[in-house]
Amino acid sequence: MTSLGRAQAWLIGALAWVSGAIVAITCLLVIVDVAAYAAGAGSIGWTADVAAYGLLYATMFAAPWLVREKGHVTLESFRRMLPPGPQRALEVLVCLLSLLACLALSWGGIALIVDSIDRGAIDFRVLAIPRWLLYLPLPVGFLLMAVEFGRVLAGRGSLYGGGSEGI
């Protein structure tokens, strides 16, 4: 494995842990919030904001790791009826389409972030949050996924054979 490959593996693994940490922190925050106002000590107020953003960050940060871990749901019944040659050909096609879509979405995401910073757009919830923070995890996740699909395309690893295989 090249050092660049190791860096990618480390990065997606670390982001997956960040994703887990976000779930744990959300949980803690909700408990503290509910306990605080049940005890008459007021309310944090912005818990729902953090929970909503947390959901998006946790999802996008877990997604590249799930590609590596073969953790995404895939239908394999049709694929498995084919001989190995066409199977590999289809896998290449799938990776290629996925790679293109991920790149397009990353591009859209980066354009969104740049545009939101330019406009100074704000996401008004209980907190007033700079809007680019809402969009930030999307290109991060999609770019890292693009790299993962690129890896499979280059013959390093496969999309299939994870927990979701079989007819």
């Binding site: 995404h72 239908l75 799938v94 389409l97 996925s98 879509a101 299939y160």
Partner: peptide, 18 residues
Amino acid sequence: ALMAIGTPVFMAFLIINA
């Protein structure tokens, strides 16, 4: 069609969305 050829389900949605 995308799901049938073995595209991960979320990716099938995203590709067709794009």
